[in-house]
Design a protein around this nucleic acid. Structure first.
Lengths: 183, 183
DNA sequence: ATAATATTTTGATAACAATCGAAGTAAAAT
DNA sequence: ATTTTACTTCGATTGTTATCAAAATATTAT
């Protein structure tokens, strides 16, 4: 179901009068004037709302003698709500993609000519930066502190802060002055 | 669930931005600024919508460092939509009561001093009138046409039309000039 | 303590929606 | 053919909502 359709459906159900209409029609098909009496609204108002419900596919109208008879499409209502509950994460790929775009945007803003302009305070951004820096280290290999400093200094003068943060964030680990990539 | 709660829930889901928020949060908790970037809305707008979602019980907020982190309450969403689908006709008594009120209103309008002012053209109203008249006949008893006319004439001069309509509507039956109440 | 950052609140604006009454349309009864 | 009846469309009104920018608050960093 498309997003606009979903919104249409919920819009229909988010109005007191239309909800009353749905309830009244759950009991059986009814024509406009009767609904008008039951809900204490003018026929024009009822007509207005029935049109909306019809657009959302919740009721269908047909003529019978004089009357414009409205019938509730119960199966469609159930089906649509149900599909919403049971919908798998169709959107997750899109989501991941946008997350990736966001990371790249952050990196573009913070790096210039391969140098880190400032160390971001915002944790999420800092994390992204640190993960970027971590790419310079090979998994499984050990590094002396001097090596680590040298690599990090490529990005920013304050290699001490960055080195500390790499540990704090759990991206790297240290023991007896030896560093390695974690994970 | 009360009607106002239902409407609150649907109102929340009937806005594009809030629907996007729900989708984004389905992937995992997120904080305001990140959502702001993902949905391309200002933080204040995001904050505004998150508050509404929280009021409807769809998300819960908590503080984490700077951040106001929003978490989707999936079980509540599912549960509420599900209860709507599976709701039995709790409203049916109310409905029946209002239908009764409507009948009485119609009868009050059409009868005066026990006489029927006019025979309504509107089928539903005519039906109501005919059922009222039918109360004068005892179930199981047979009536000659003259008896029938006499009883009906109490209500209106045009007993022919009314008698014919009683048959046409299936309220009474006739065979060989003998009438009786059906049903 | 001061500055930086994240969030919320407020005020303004513009778009939208519900309602009614009146005018218009269509179908059926007379 | 005319009238009655049911319904729809239109115009106006009123209330609601989404949005942003700016100001106010709160939390963390320096």
């Amino acid at each position: 179901m498309s997003e606009s359709q979903t919104i249409l459906l919920f819009k229909c159900l988010s109005d007191a009068t239309r909800l009353q209409l749905v309830k009244a029609l759950a009991d059986g098909p009814k024509y406009v004037e009767l609904l008008s009496e039951l809900l204490e609204r003018t026929p024009s108002t009822i007509s207005f709302h029935l049109k909306k419900l019809e657009e959302a596919g919740l009721v269908s109208m047909h003529k019978e003698q004089y009357y414009a008879v409205a019938t509730l499409n119960r199966q469609i209502l159930d089906q649509q709500l149900f599909s919403l509950i049971c919908s798998p994460g169709e959107q997750l790929d899109m989501q991941a993609e946008r997350e990736q775009q966001y990371r790249e945007k952050v990196l573009q803003n913070l790096f210039e000519y391969g140098k880190l302009k400032t160390i971001p305070v915002q944790r999420k951004k800092r994390r992204i930066v640190l993960e970027e820096i971590a790419k310079r280290f090979k998994p499984g290999r050990n590094y002396a502190e001097k090596e680590v400093n040298l690599i990090i200094a490529d990005f920013h003068d304050d290699f001490c802060t960055l080195r500390r943060e790499l540990i704090a964030e759990g991206i790297m680990a240290r023991e007896n002055g030896v560093y390695w990539l974690k994970g």
